[in-house]
Structure formats: C-alpha cells, structure tokens
Write a protein that binds this DNA or RNA. Sequence first.
DNA 1: GGCGTTCTAGAATATTCGCCC
DNA 2: CGGGCGAATATTCTAGAACGC
Lengths: 419, 419, 419
Amino acid sequence: MKQNYQVPAFLTKLWTLVDDSCTNELVCWSEEGCSFIVLDEQRFSKEVLPLYYKHCNMTSFIRQLNMYGFHKVVPLDSGLLKEDGRGDSVEFQHEHFRKDQPHLLTLIHRKVSVSRGVDDAGQISQILVEISQARGWQDSFDFKLMALCRDNESLWRELNSLQQKHQQQHRIICKIMQFIINTVGSKGMKGLKRKLPMIEISGETHSVPKYSRPSDSSVDSNLPSFSMPETPSPQDIPQLDSLSPGVYSNGMVFSDITHLLEPLPEQDSDPVVENTCPTSPLSPALSPVDLTLSLLDDPAGQDMAEKLAERNELVDPLSLIDSSLAAIQAYPLSPSLDTLDELFRPTSESDTHTPKRKRETKQGGNTHSYKYTAGIVRPVLQHEDLSFGGDSVEADILPSLLRLAQEASIPLHTDTLSV
Amino acid sequence: MKQNYQVPAFLTKLWTLVDDSCTNELVCWSEEGCSFIVLDEQRFSKEVLPLYYKHCNMTSFIRQLNMYGFHKVVPLDSGLLKEDGRGDSVEFQHEHFRKDQPHLLTLIHRKVSVSRGVDDAGQISQILVEISQARGWQDSFDFKLMALCRDNESLWRELNSLQQKHQQQHRIICKIMQFIINTVGSKGMKGLKRKLPMIEISGETHSVPKYSRPSDSSVDSNLPSFSMPETPSPQDIPQLDSLSPGVYSNGMVFSDITHLLEPLPEQDSDPVVENTCPTSPLSPALSPVDLTLSLLDDPAGQDMAEKLAERNELVDPLSLIDSSLAAIQAYPLSPSLDTLDELFRPTSESDTHTPKRKRETKQGGNTHSYKYTAGIVRPVLQHEDLSFGGDSVEADILPSLLRLAQEASIPLHTDTLSV
Amino acid sequence: MKQNYQVPAFLTKLWTLVDDSCTNELVCWSEEGCSFIVLDEQRFSKEVLPLYYKHCNMTSFIRQLNMYGFHKVVPLDSGLLKEDGRGDSVEFQHEHFRKDQPHLLTLIHRKVSVSRGVDDAGQISQILVEISQARGWQDSFDFKLMALCRDNESLWRELNSLQQKHQQQHRIICKIMQFIINTVGSKGMKGLKRKLPMIEISGETHSVPKYSRPSDSSVDSNLPSFSMPETPSPQDIPQLDSLSPGVYSNGMVFSDITHLLEPLPEQDSDPVVENTCPTSPLSPALSPVDLTLSLLDDPAGQDMAEKLAERNELVDPLSLIDSSLAAIQAYPLSPSLDTLDELFRPTSESDTHTPKRKRETKQGGNTHSYKYTAGIVRPVLQHEDLSFGGDSVEADILPSLLRLAQEASIPLHTDTLSV
DNA sequence: GGCGTTCTAGAATATTCGCCC
DNA sequence: CGGGCGAATATTCTAGAACGC
C-alpha cells in the first residue's frame, strides 16, 4: 500500500481508488482497462475524493488529472442532455494509466513549468566549459601573436639589412661611376680632367647639399617624430657626403609598435605615397585615427613639399644641362653626375612617411593586466636617397649616351613624384 | 549501548530506540523490518525522544532522519483528516536501516552540505569575472593585431620602397653598362665590334623569351586573384617602359587577406632551404603544409634548375674571359655582356613562388560568420625583372650589342611577369 | 469571514483563529499584542488547525508562517526540557501581525522564490550571449591572425625575392667591375698597372680580409643559431664560386616559424650578425627593455665604429683618387678598385645587427602560459655579404684583379655555406 | 571538524482560482 | 460552456544555515 518512490502520491492514490472494488459504483475502469470512469461525479467528489486527497472538489481532481497529462474522453452521446442526475459520468484516460499495470505509473510525469533549477545547473556547467575553452583560445592567440611579432621583427631586421646592402651597393655604383668618369675623363680629355675633381667636389658640395640637405632635414624632422628619440639616427650621411657626391641619407631608425590601437574597422591600404593608417572609431579623443591622420598629414605635407622642391631643383639643373651642352668638355662630367644623382634620388621620398608609423597610443579600457607589447622590433629602414647627380654629357667621348641616361632618369623622377 | 566508532550517535540511538520492545507502542519496526513507524508522534516526542536525545521535538528528530538520508514513507490515506489525536503515525525508512541488521548502520552517512546555492552564486559571479577578463583579452588581442597589421603595412611600404630603389639602381646599372658599352665600343674597338658574339647572343635572347613568356601569363593570372581588385595597381611601369629599355615590371598590388585559416596548434619552423609554412591540422586535404611544400618545391626546383643553368651560362663567359684574355680588346666586351645579361635574368624566379601564395585553404569548422578582412594593405612588390634592356643605341660602334641587350630584357620581363 | 482580496487566506485565517476567544487556551495573542502564542502545540495542531486549514500538522502551519515572514520568538527558558506535555508553547511574531489591527495584514507578503531563479536566469542568459560574442571574436581573431600569417609569408617571399635580386645585382656590379678592370686594364695602361694599384690593392686585400673575415666568422657563428640547423643552406654558392669572383653568397632560405614558443624567455634569432630577439617579460633580468637597449647600443656602437672605419678607408682612396688624378692612366684604376673593394665590405655585417632595433615590449603581468604556434613561414634571408675581397694580383694585364675578385668570393661562399 | 539542535528555506506536489479560446 | 492551462497559494518533505558542543 506504500507508494513507489518516484511516483507522486496523486497517481498511486488515483490508481488505488480507481482499482478499489468498493467504489466501483462511483469510479471504475473502462471495459478495455485503458481509462477510468467517474460514474457519479457528485458522490465521487464528496465521498471518494476526501478519502485520498485533501479536498472534495471535482475540479481540483480534474486539475491534477490534467497536470499529469490525463485527458477527458469525449462521450459519443455528448449531444443529448441527460435529464436524470444519474447520467453525469466523466471519463479520463492516459497512455500509461492501465488496469492491472500500476508499474506504468512511473512513466507518467507531472507537467512542470520550466523548472529553472535543472536549467541553470546545466547551463552553468556548460558555461564553465565554454569559458575554459575560450581561455585556451586566448592562450593560443597570444602565442600566435607573439610568434607573429617575432616574425615581424625578423622581417624588419632582414629588410633593414637588405636596405643597408642596397645602400652599400649604391655606394659602389657611385664609385664605379666616379671611376668611369675619372677614367674616361682622364683618358678622353686630357686638359679637362683636372676640372672634374674640382667640379665634382664643388659641384657636389653645391648641388648635393641643396638637394640632400632638404632630404636630411626631412629625415630629421620626420623620423624623430615618428621614430623614437632614443635611437639617434645613425649618420653615415656626413661621411658619405664627404665621400661621394651621390649620398645616401642613411638613417637607421628603430620604431616599435608598443601601443595597440582599437580594432580598426576599415583600413585603407596605402602603399608608397599615401599611406593611410588604420583608424579606430572607438576612441575619438585620442583615437588612432587622429593620430594616424596627424602622422600622415605631416609626412604627406612634407613629402609633397619636398617633392615639389625636389622637382624644381631637378627641373632646373636639367634645363641647365640641356641648354649648356655647348661647354661639354668641362661640363660633361658634372652633368652626368647630375643625371645619376637624380636617378639616385627619387624613390627615397616615398619611404619618408613610412617611418612615421611609430606611435605609442596607450590602450585604454584594458582592465586586464595584459600589457602585452607586441614586441615588434622595427628598424626603420634607411631612407637612403639614391641621388647621385650627373648631367647630360656629350663630349667627344660619349656624352650623348650620358644624356640619354639623364633623360631616362627624368621621367622616373616624375614617376616617383607622381606616386 | 556503546556506539561503534564511525557510526554517529544518532544512528545507534535510533536503532536502539526503535528496536527497544519497551517502546513498541510508540515506535516500532514495520512488518517487513525495512522501516520504522512512530505510532504516536505526540507521546513519542515527549516520552521517548528525551531518553535518547537532548530534545523532545519531533521536528528535530525528523531533521536528523533526513540528515542521514531517511525518507518518510507516505501513507496512501493521507487525505483523510483524523480528528482524534491517536491516528497520527509517521513512517521512515532507509536503505541500510534494517531490523536485526545494526551492522548496516556503518553504511549510513550524514549528509554534508555541499551547498549548491553558494556554488551557483559563486560560479555565476566567477563566470562574470572571467567573461570580463576574456573581454579584456579580446581587446588586447585586437589591439595587438591592429598593431601587427600596421606593422605589416609598414613592412610592405618599406619593402616596396626598397624594391623601387632596387629598380632604380638597376636602371642605373643598365645605364652604366650602356655607357660602358658605348664608350668602350666607340673607343676601344672599331673593327671588332661587329663580331658575332652578338648573333650568338641574339640567339639566346630569342630562346629566352619563349621561356619567360608563359611565366608572364602566370603572373597575370595569379597576382590578380590574390591581390585586391579594388586597388588598381599603380602603374609606374608604363612610364618606366617609356623611359628605359630595361624595364621593371612594376606593379603595386594590394592584397588583403580576407580568409582565415584555423589556428595552428604546432608548427615547425623551417629555415633555410625548405620553408615549411604554417599548417593547419584541421584540414589535411588542403593543409597549409601541403600548400607550402608545393609552393616551395616549385620554386626550389626552379631555383636549382635555374641556378644550374645560370652556372653553366656564367661559367662559360667566365672561362671565356679567363681563357681569352689574350684577345682582350674585342673579346672581353661581348662575353662580359653576355654574362651580365645572364645575370640579369635569373633571380626573378624567386618571385615565382610569391604569387603562389594564393591558396584556398578552406577554413573548416568556423561556425561563425566572420566577415572580417584583416585590412591589410599589401602592396605587391613589383617583380621587377632585372633584365637589362638595351636602349636605343646609336653608334656605328656597337649598336648591335645594345640592341641585343634590349631584346634580352624583353624576355626577362615576361619572365618576371610569368611569376 | 470573507478575506480581503489581496490578503491570502492563510493570513486572514491566522488572524481569525488567533483572535478567536474560543481557542484562547490553545492559541492567543501575546500580552503586547505583537505576537501570538500557541500554548499547546499538540492540541492546537489537532484541534484548531483543521478548523481553518486542510491539515493538522504544526509543521505545515509553521511553514506557512515562515513563508509569510513570521518568526519564532525564542523563549528564554529554551534550555530546560519540560517533561510534561503542557509546557511546549510556541510564539511567533510578524511586524504587521498585530492584535486589533487586521488591516495591517495587507502589508504581509508571501515570499516568492525569486531568489536565484529570476536573478540568475537573467545573468545566465546574458552570460550565454556574451560567450557567443566571445566566440565570434575568437573566430574573428583567428581569421585575422591567419591573414597576418599569410601576409608575413608574402613579405618573406618578397623580401627574399628582393634579396636575390640584390644579389643578382651585386653579381652584375662585380661583372661590371671585372669588365672595367679588364677593359681599362687591357686598354689604357700597360706599364702603369703594376704601379701602386697592386700595392694598394694588396694592402687593402690584406687589411680588408682581416676585417671582413671576422665579420664572416661572426656570421657563421651567429646565423646558425638563428636559422635552423636542419635546413641545409641552399648552395648556389658553389655555382657562384665557379662563376664569378665577386660573389654574393646567395642562399634562398625559407624558414617557417612553426613552433610557437612560449613567451620566449630566450630567443636566438639572429640574423646576420647578432640580432637579439624579443625577450620574455617573465625574466626581468633579461627584460626586453634591457635587451633592446643593449642591443641598440651595441649595434649603434658597431655601426658608428664601422662607419668611421669605413669612412676612413673610403676617404683615403677617394682622396687618393682626387689627389692622384695626374696619374690617371694607371692610377685611376687601383684606387677605384680599392674604393670599391671597401664598399663591398662594410655595411653588410654592421647592418645585420642593426635590426636589433628597438622594441618596447613591456609585457607585464601575463599570467597565462601561451602555447601558441603561429604558422609563420619565415624564409631566412640570405645574409649575403657584399664583400668583395681583393687578393694578391699579378698579371701583366689585369688578370690579377680578376683573380682577386674570385678569391674574394671564396670566403663569402664559405660564409654562406656555413650558414 | 563533525555532530546535534533549531529555525528557516527550497522544492515538489497539491489545491484553488481564473482566464481564454 | 467547458476543457485546458497559468498562476498563486497550500501542504509536505527535505535541505540550508547558524550556533553550540
């Protein structure tokens, strides 16, 4: 007579009272045993229900039936009204409520309203799992980032190395040209040869300074702002200056990217001439955008200014050269120099802005001590200018060829400038 | 009456009082001996409980029963209210509380309060903390990523700049060579220049194009797909083209990396010869490794092949030079030219793999729809070919040589383009 | 007896039964009227409770009291056990349960288990949202990282390509020099060639090798550490060796960074000469800052030193050239050679470390251990040294110069090979 | 720190009310 | 109008928690 655990009292009591032969005239199994019938609702509720439940209301009983998934069996004769009181019978059924099979009661479950408890437990455990996964990912990302940072450092190193080599090569080329000039000059022209040195030297000091100075200053003004002040840009320039006419303005700049900006939604890529940096919409005050723009503006302005100045300077000499071909013997030398000088120059400008990238925007709302600095080593490449000026030459030797080279070089300049 | 150690006093006392025949009218074993029944709660609590415990409260007794895992046995007749005080009996049972088996008491354990409530609260608060941390990390990562992206942009800029400089240098070198050819030719050798080295050379120039052309097309097909269409590649080329015979195919290409691969768990670094690319363990079919290997293999093969070819070609001239020093005046010229010509060609291959980077790593299990495009500006460096283009030459001296150089340059271009 | 709407039946019934003078011997107001007392729990539960509620359990009654915020008034004599059944009285009170003030009942509210359910539900759902967001971010990061990795690969490729081109150019330059030497030598100077040039050259060759060798060795020792040992450095060198005297040690090396290191406490990357890589924040002793500074200082010092040395060397020849233009036929040659020779040497090594650039990794409290592997392909760039060593020269024409160039190339090869 | 006692709360079921189609 | 259900309350069983030992 004890109810099974797991089976609510209502069900065991229900099965018991239906199965009780003493109450068969009030409540009983249907013929098939698949449902039960309350023959006399009135008497059943008043006489039977209180024996099992704390009430004597048919509605409460029915409510419980519904709560456990029982359904009323609609009688076929529902249409006709039964005049006598005897006729009010109610039939309910449930899939697992069968005569002689009380064990099926365990399959009957009370409807529960979303049972939050179970819900939460599962959710929480799942959440914990996901969080641990997220952590793993974060670690992974951090690791990858470190690797990438290191890779970039290597890239900068290599690139810088290559740039220096390039510069070196340029010096070699300059030397070769000097040699050629000297040799050819000394050979071809006897009386003229002495001119060269002087001209070269004087020409260099004159023309080159004019040209190189600006670039130097640009480097000075630009790089410092961009690169770290702590890294004094190496000065090979003076040396080179004294050495050869075509000088590389060589500035070794290290810039590191220590501050991280907010994620930049849209970035404009921008190669050589106008590099737009990624911008962050999130921090308006000191937003990366501003920084970027300011950084870019500066250089851009400078660059443009420089380029214009440069162009002017270049145009001038060229026209000069062209117009003064008459005095070739002495001239040939310096002209060729000019031309070469020009050839050496152009590309360097584009670089100038590059270095500016160094910026130290402090990252704001990072509440975590994740102060990771993408340890990026970024040697600012030397913006060696390739300038090495030679001009048009036409002497008895081969000035025409030189001029050709000169002319060829001109467009290139414009080219680079146009970039 | 001594309790077994290990068995709480409550249990031994319980078993004792239930088993005590003197109190059978108040508390006793059930018929099966699997539970005990308090027949008269009132009297039991006031008369029996104090004999064993420090209280006379049924509630405290029941609390202890529950604490040890006992459960109330629900009577089916719970519905009826018993007016008289006599009827209230309570039945409890426990798996290991059996009549005649007091030794089972050792199996009954007091519940310890794991207190889930605190747990959840703690868990939830902890979860919130972790989530905020995760957010911080995400911001940090984002920041770092942006920094890296910017760094890469700078790298591309610098690299491009250097490439342009290199190109510029190449032009200078070409000019120097032209000058040398013209100068030396015009000067040194009058009758020798017409030699046929040129013809031979021309033969070479013919064959070369055939080879290089295809490669050009490959470049066309590859680079576009890789780089972004939206960034029209800057055209210095036309200008350059018009400028000098030896032209660099200069294409400024921006490519962005829009698709991401799965995170790579472990990667092997692989330096010098065979660079292994990062690999994705998740997609074996098109794993980065495979791609990388294939990419590398190709170039490697090409490189090696070319280098061999190169060596042969180069060796020839060199040995020629060495062996034919006797005929210095005329001979030295063409061989060296050849050698130079050859020198101009080979390296371009290295570029060849570059384009290959186009890869179609399908990113697998990414369930999220990420439309992120690492706004990476990636100016594709100009695959300037080092081809040495001859210019227009006008001299009775050695025009043929120059033209040869020009023609040689063409194939080279195609070569690089083919990359 | 109709209960006020808004006031639960329990409260109205409670007030009624307490206030009922018929049950004063079982339950009554306290003297102050601020609480009520159940004088005889036994009889009260069996005789009074059923009159108002559907049960006769004191526990159920108390449960309801607690549910409505009533509290038991702890008796001062709680310590003593009352043997007789009469002594057990229970007193409960509620702020708004007062004698003669039934209207206060509206202020008594049944507790609803909002407790964790509502609260947590919101939190949990929010947490789930945030977690999904975090997942999205992670995927996004992953995507970006992959993009960056690919971008870096491209950078390496491009850089390598450019390096090869540079190398190629260097070969060309060497060829040009050879050509110049041969041509000029064969032509211009017959008796003069044996002049100083040799001496100077030999002197230089002596000094230069001494200088360059060490650097080479440094490369040897350093590069290995940086590049992977497992990758045999490509051998173009042999070829080159046989090919040309002035050779670039050209090694196309792809190294990929497949393993991600822990925030590497110690890294050895080392490009050419000695580049120190980013360091792990964890080891304060070797903090990135320190390393960086030291690195920078070093290279800077080296660079400066080298540049000075370089300048001196260069200046010398140059001034020599300038001053000795008189003896052009013979002289021009050797000086230029010297100059060139020197030019080939210097920068390469110094640059290598230069890259050590600056880094600002201040990574602070990284509490997590990162096991990340960024599939980064990192072709180790060839650290081609530009050295072009002159050797002893002895030939009537200029074969000595050529041989010098050749021999000079040997060390270079070994250099690259050693890598 | 485990155990015992007490007060209170949680949780599931039970009862009732009312709504709504 | 009545079956079904939501919601509030009620009853029961069990658990949490504070405190003392």
